[in-house]
Amino acid sequence: MVSEFCNKVAEILRPMTLKDLDEVLAIEQASFSSPWTRNMFVQELSISISRSLTLWMILPESSLLVGYMICWIVAGEVHLQKIAVKPESRRRHRATCLMKALFQSARDERCRSVVLEVRRSNIAAQKLYEKFGLVSKGIRRSYYSEEGEDALIMGTDLPRESALTGN
């Protein structure tokens, strides 16, 4: 199905499958200093509280995976676990497309809030999240254990029409 959240007709969102993992892992390794393993993604796909989406660019004779998102739905809360876009596909509103889908899922599942952790140094991601109404709620000290970097806890209460539009 063509995504109603994306600006271009040539992009679709669909649930992540095991067949997607080679491409997902390539984006994961290019995006994170401590990437998840194939096994971690396989486990994620089997967890009932997990929702995993992929974003595809449709080309004349093929399709290209350009991003993905994983979130958990727990006790009326959406917890964003992962969001990543292929490096060469960034700055084209693809993360915004994925975030809009996250908020639509939250509304569909009647969630009351959205929460996530983000590296304190990841200003670009923080700006994206702020665009959707998320604000800093606290700090998790040394959350990213490999580097000892703190995470900002960001969140927002739902429903918020401004969060759904990203304005």
Rank of each mutant, 00 (worst) to 15 (best):
S46I: 02
R160L: 10
G138E: 09
A125I: 05
F32M: 08
W72Y: 05
M1V: 02
Q43A: 05
C97P: 00
Y143D: 02
N39G: 13
I153A: 07
T165Q: 13
L164K: 10
P159V: 04
C71P: 01
D150E: 04
I12Q: 04
L53D: 11
M1Y: 00
I73C: 04
K131D: 02
S31H: 11
F132P: 01
D20E: 12
E88K: 02
F103Y: 15
R14V: 05
T165L: 14
G166T: 11
L116C: 10
S136D: 10
T156K: 06
V66S: 04
D108W: 14
I49Q: 14
R112D: 13
M57F: 12
W56Y: 14
S48N: 03
A101K: 03
L102I: 09
Q81N: 13
S105G: 06
Q104H: 15
Y144I: 00
E23P: 00
I139L: 05
M69F: 05
H79C: 08
V115H: 10
P159E: 08
T156A: 13
L21Q: 05
L13I: 11
I70M: 07
N7F: 12
A163V: 08
E4R: 10
L80K: 03
E44I: 03
A101W: 01
G148T: 10
R140D: 12
Q29M: 12
R90K: 12
I83W: 01
A95N: 04
A30G: 02
I47Y: 15
D20M: 03
M57E: 13
E147L: 02
Q29K: 11
R112W: 09
I47S: 13
K131F: 04
M154V: 06
R119E: 00
G155D: 04
Y143C: 03
V24T: 04
S105A: 11
T17G: 10
Q104E: 11
S34V: 09
V85I: 15
N39C: 02
F132Y: 11
T17D: 05
L55G: 01
E88A: 03
L21C: 02
R92K: 13
A101D: 01
E149S: 10
M1H: 03
E77F: 03
